[in-house]
Structures are given as structure tokens and as C-alpha cells.
């Protein structure tokens, strides 16, 4: 069992974008148009009370199951907790990869995420997040390509 988890603050935008690029739901050779974000599974959908719940996004070409998760700012607590628990259960963690999807974003993305998920201003908030993510899209491409390179090295 090979599991790749992209984690971010809210599990609704940056992790979904990374997982979508990884699974080829979003293009890796150009910046997608705003309309290409609308059909993405789980984009701007994660509820606050579901944070900490990994969501399955799909399986990639190397056979890794790709998940997204929102960990707020608690990754330094939750990741060791997950790893020590799996260790206690005797599970091999060589095939568990957790990737921080919080790349440097335009502040408008965070404001948009907050407006959409916490204030309920879906239309405005979603547009702001899409604008911000498109602005930082090369950084997402770079992160995902490095992750894929890592997986390719493990694969062979």
C-alpha cells in the first residue's frame, strides 16, 4: 500500500491543487483558466469539522493512492502522532509520504479561503482563491514535479 498525502491548512485549496496537478486533473504545462477549477473534486469543499480527515483523490501512474488533508497549523503535532501510531501498530511507513502543500501564496488566496470557508462568501472567496492559486501556479508545478521525481526514483 503506497499512500501520498498532500496536506495544507484547510484541505480545500492548495492541497487539492497539488493533488489535482499530480493526478493530471489540472495541466502541468500551462496555467489553467479559472473555469478549470470548478469541476475539481473537493476544491473549496472541506468543512471545518472535517479537518484532520484524509480525503481520497485518486491513484497516480506509479500506483500511489493520493489523499488530501487539512491540518491547520498542527502538522508538527499530527504528523508525529500518525507516524508513532502506525509504528505502534507495526505498519511499514516507507510507503507513506506526507507532503506540505503550503507553498508561498499571494495573501489574497488566504483571504479568499477564509471568506469562502469561514464567512460563507462562496462566490467571492472562491474567485479570490482561484486568482491567487493561478498567480502561484508555477510554485505548485515545481512542488508536484519534485514529488513525482521522488516517486519515480522509488518506483525504479
Amino acid at each position: 500500500m503506497k499512500i501520498l498525502v498532500y496536506y495544507c491548512y484547510g484541505g480545500a485549496h492548495t492541497s487539492v491543487t497539488c493533488a489535482s496537478i499530480h493526478l493530471n486533473y489540472l495541466p502541468s504545462d500551462r496555467i489553467p483558466g479559472p473555469e478549470e477549477f470548478a469541476p475539481l473534486p473537493f476544491y473549496d469543499k472541506m468543512d471545518h469539522d472535517k479537518l484532520g480527515t484524509p480525503v481520497y483523490m485518486g491513484r497516480d501512474e506509479y500506483g500511489w493512492d493520493v489523499y488530501i488533508i487539512g491540518l491547520k497549523r498542527a502538522n508538527a503535532v499530527i504528523i508525529p502522532a500518525i507516524r508513532t501510531y502506525l509504528n505502534a501498530c507495526g505498519k511499514d511507513q516507507a510507503d507513506l509520504l506526507l507532503v506540505n502543500a503550503l507553498v508561498e501564496l499571494h495573501p489574497l488566496t488566504s483571504i479568499g479561503g477564509y471568506s469562502s470557508r469561514r464567512l460563507g462568501l462562496l462566490s467571492l472567496g472562491r474567485r479570490m482563491t482561484v486568482w491567487g492559486i493561478r498567480k502561484s501556479y508555477p510554485k505548485f508545478l515545481d512542488l508536484v514535479s519534485r514529488v513525482k521525481e521522488n516517486l519515480r526514483m522509488r518506483h525504479y
Binding site: 500500500m1 499512500i3 469539522d49 472535517k50 479537518l51 484532520g52 480527515t53 484524509p54 489523499y67 488533508i69 491540518l71 491547520k72 498542527a74 503535532v77 499530527i78 502522532a81 500518525i82 501510531y85 502506525l86 501498530c89 505498519k91
Partner: peptide, 15 residues
């Protein structure tokens, strides 16, 4: 809540 949910769900994922 985050810790409990994460451990419970990863427990499920890893069977």
C-alpha cells in the same frame, strides 16, 4: 479533534 480524526482515519486507510 484533529489528532483523534487523523489517527482514526489513517487506522482505517492502513486496514
Amino acid at each position: 479533534g484533529l489528532a483523534v480524526r487523523a489517527i482514526e482515519n489513517f487506522s482505517r486507510i492502513f486496514g
